[in-house]
Every structure is written in structure tokens, then in C-alpha cells.
């Protein structure tokens, strides 16, 4: 998913499309395009359209009242809180991990990279389960927590922890290949000119990786706000208290309150569309700055 490289628009198209020997007949082209569009329609476009159609089925008034409902608002608030904590923490981690991995050689580096990827391989349900095993009533710290009247599971800290887990690798994964490709010449030059470590980080490294960083943050945020499985295990589904937006959608849907469920879902779908737009913009800037570096 190295998104940034995919936008380097193909020099190839122009060269090959004009050449009859290396292109297909028109009927083949249009059949293939039609097949691809049919596949994308069945699995992408129709679900997206369905969200908004179902949300507005009972009229705009029902739609708006579903969104300004107190439980919906508190779910939105909790979703933002979880993302607001998870994103900065994973951002700092991503920069630290990429600095260590890209700028230095050490034993076990490839193992470390694999371990950072681990949360992607773990089912969201299991991500929630492991925190229940540690902080739940029967868990390692369950007794201690209840003695001190603290709650992690079925409370906000559990939701934040599960969110951090499922979004853990995003920033690091974007930054490691980017910083490895950039090398360390600029940092070494800054050091020779008398910059301190933090000055190098702020003035040299971060400006160089800003697009990759932003890209990682956008992906982290989207996943943080949309996570369902992991959060569902640790949340306890207490209305107005431990419900995030995706959980709120589930509860309404299971109560057969479809219009309200799809209204809440449409907010998340809009968020997803905004994410895709931002992502495309960042990819465009990243490709432009990569081209600018190549030309120098």
C-alpha cells in the first residue's frame, strides 16, 4: 500500500496507446472497461450510493433529527476523542521508529519492521480481546483496577487503547521506506554545520517527510474514527457513554431503526470521501515534490 508511488502518472500511456502493435482492438478495450466498471459498481459505487439513499429515505427532517440526537452527538464526541489521542501518539511513534530504522544499522532490524506490521495481521476482534485479558475484571490488572475504582474495559481508556492498536503501523509504514530512500546526507550536512539533534529533526527531516507524514496521519485518522470490531469488544455499548459512531450505527441498525442508522452511517461515509480527497491531494503534492527533487 505504498500509496505515494501509485500516483506517478504513467509516462507509459501516451507512448503505448498510439501504437497499434502494443494496444488492443477497440472492442476488447471497451469490453474490459465495461467489466471493470461492472465489478466496481457492484462492490463499490452501489454500497456508497445505498448509504445516502437509505439515510434520506424518510426525508430530511428524520435525517437531521437522527444526527442531532443526544446519543449520536456523544458518539461523535467519543469518536473524535479516541482519534485525537490515538493519532498523535502513533505519529510520534512513527517518526521515532522511522528515524531509528532508516538512519541507523542494527541487528534485528527486519524483525523490528515485521513486528511493527503485526497489528495489521491481527483480527480487530482479537485486538479488543487482548486488552480484556489484561484490564478486564478477570484480567491481570482487573482486581487492582477495581480496588482503585478505575475502569479501562467498558470505558473510554479501553476504546482509546484498542484504537491505538489497530492504527499502530500506519505512520511508521509510510515513513520508513520514505526516509530510507532519502538517506541521511542532509542530516549529516546539518550536523557538520553545527545543528543539534532536535534542530535536525525539526528543520531538515520533518520538512522532507511532511507529505508522507500527512498521508500516514490521514490513514490513521480514517481508521481510528471508523474502527468497529476492536472497539466493539472493549466498549460495552453503553449509550451516551462508551458508544463510538460505528457502534452507534450498529445499535440503531439492530433496533430496526434503519433511517437513523444510515443517517449516522452517512456521516462516516462523508468522512471517508473527505479522506479520499485529502489523500489524493497529498499524493499529488508528494509526487510533485518527488519530481522536483529528481530534476535538481
Amino acid at each position: 500500500m505504498s500509496g505515494i508511488s501509485t500516483t506517478q502518472f504513467s509516462k507509459y500511456n501516451a507512448k503505448i496507446a498510439k501504437n497499434r502493435a502494443t494496444s488492443e482492438p477497440a472492442w476488447v478495450r471497451w469490453t474490459l472497461i465495461a467489466a471493470a466498471l461492472l465489478y466496481l459498481s457492484l462492490f463499490l459505487f452501489m454500497p456508497l450510493a445505498a448509504v445516502f439513499t437509505e439515510a434520506l429515505r424518510k426525508g430530511v427532517d428524520t435525517y437531521i433529527s437522527a444526527l442531532v440526537d443526544a446519543d449520536a452527538l456523544s458518539a461523535m464526541k467519543l469518536t473524535f476523542i479516541a482519534a485525537l489521542i490515538a493519532v498523535p501518539l502513533n505519529l510520534v511513534f512513527g517518526v521515532a521508529a522511522a528515524w531509528a530504522i532508516a538512519k541507523f544499522e542494527f541487528k534485528g532490524k527486519s524483525i523490528l519492521i515485521t513486528l511493527i506490521d503485526l497489528p495489521f495481521a491481527v483480527s480487530p476482534v482479537i485486538a479488543g480481546l487482548i486488552y480484556v485479558l489484561i484490564f478486564g475484571l478477570q484480567g491481570w490488572f482487573g482486581q487492582w483496577l477495581s480496588d482503585h475504582d478505575l475502569k479501562v474495559i467498558f470505558a473510554i481508556p479501553g476504546i482509546v487503547l484498542a484504537t491505538i492498536f489497530v492504527t499502530f503501523p500506519f505512520v511508521a509504514r509510510e515513513l520508513i521506506p520514505l526516509m530510507q530512500a532519502q538517506g541521511k546526507d542532509e542530516e549529516e550536512a546539518a550536523l557538520v554545520l553545527g545543528a543539534s539533534g532536535w534542530q535536525i529533526l525539526w528543520r531538515v527531516t520533518l520538512p522532507n517527510i511532511k507529505w508522507g507524514l500527512l498521508y500516514g496521519v490521514i490513514l490513521t485518522n480514517a481508521r481510528a474514527m471508523g474502527e468497529f470490531g476492536a472497539v466493539s469488544v472493549v466498549s460495552g455499548h453503553i449509550r451516551g457513554l462508551t458508544n463510538t459512531m460505528p457502534l452507534h450505527v450498529e445499535i440503531l441498525y439492530n433496533e430496526y431503526n434503519y433511517a437513523a442508522a444510515f443517517a449516522a452511517a452517512s456521516v462516516l461515509a462523508l468522512l471517508a470521501l473527505v479522506t479520499l480527497v485529502l489523500k489524493s491531494i497529498v499524493e499529488w503534492y508528494a509526487a510533485r515534490s518527488a519530481r522536483a527533487i529528481e530534476q535538481n
Binding site: M1, S23, R29, F228
Partner: peptide
């Protein structure tokens, strides 16, 4: 390889399953 109307938007929308919360995808 091919050009057709709306290609860039479709290209961007391919990533929708990464961005759309799974619960929303499920009910849709």
C-alpha cells in the same frame, strides 16, 4: 492502459474500502 471518462475519480474511489468504516460497509 485505457482512458475513459471519470477515470481519475474512479481511481481515487478504489481506496474507499480502506477509508469506509466496516460497519457502514456492512449495512450498505
Amino acid at each position: 492502459r485505457y482512458t475513459f471518462p471519470g477515470k481519475r475519480i474512479i481511481d481515487a474511489l478504489v481506496d474507499l474500502p480502506f477509508a469506509l468504516p466496516t460497519a457502514v460497509a456492512g449495512i450498505a
